[in-house]
Simulated assay, not measured.
Amino acid sequence: MIVLSHTGATMKAGSEYLAKHNREVKQLPEDVVEMIHGAYSKFQDSDFHLETDAHITQWAARQAYIVLGNMMTAGALMGIDSCPIEGFELDKTEAVLRTEFGIDTRVYKPAVMVAFGYRADGPMFPKTRREMSDIVTWA
């Protein structure tokens, strides 16, 4: 599965996409749409310094990992194994998305891939973990 994220073309504060989404999908009143625009502008410009479309596209891709984590957790709860994949050829993946699926890669970018399935056998090696005290500090 390829998880797509929006790009700076759609996720920039005040974009036509965000305004339409807030008005038509969320059915928010105009004053709330304007309030959200202001909050997004502050978040992008002042809080996270997302100054270019590339910065916004990278931020949007990181949001896709929230979805990825939930999908992998849900799969695990159903007994389905998964593996996140970042090591793919972006240009070739985008070409396939455009030609085979009609995806506008100016609007959507592949953020991450994930494979789901059932393992044929048990793990080849025992699972190992660091000690909790080595990675967590309780304050």
Rank of each mutant, 00 (worst) to 15 (best):
P110K: 09
F116N: 08
G122C: 11
I56A: 06
Q44G: 00
K92C: 01
D104V: 06
E86A: 09
D31I: 01
A54M: 05
M71S: 13
T7Q: 00
L18Q: 06
L28W: 15
F48G: 00
Y108E: 08
I103P: 11
M78V: 00
V96E: 08
S15N: 07
F125W: 08
T57C: 03
A64W: 02
L90H: 10
G75F: 10
M11L: 11
Y40D: 12
P123Y: 08
T128N: 04
I103M: 10
G122I: 11
G87S: 13
H6F: 07
D91T: 15
H6Q: 08
K109E: 12
T128V: 10
I85Y: 00
T105W: 07
Y17C: 07
I103F: 14
H55L: 06
A61Q: 11
M78R: 04
Q63E: 04
A61F: 00
Y65R: 01
H6C: 05
T73N: 14
Q63T: 12
G87A: 14
T128F: 05
E16S: 14
P110I: 09
A54L: 09
R98H: 00
Q58Y: 13
V32D: 05
P126M: 06
P126V: 09
I36Y: 10
M11I: 02
V114N: 04
A39P: 00
F48K: 09
R106S: 10
L68Y: 03
V112R: 00
G69H: 04
Q27H: 07
D121T: 15
T10P: 06
A54T: 09
M72C: 15
D45I: 01
G117I: 05
E24I: 05
Y40V: 03
I80M: 11
F48E: 02
Q63P: 01
G87M: 06
Q44K: 01
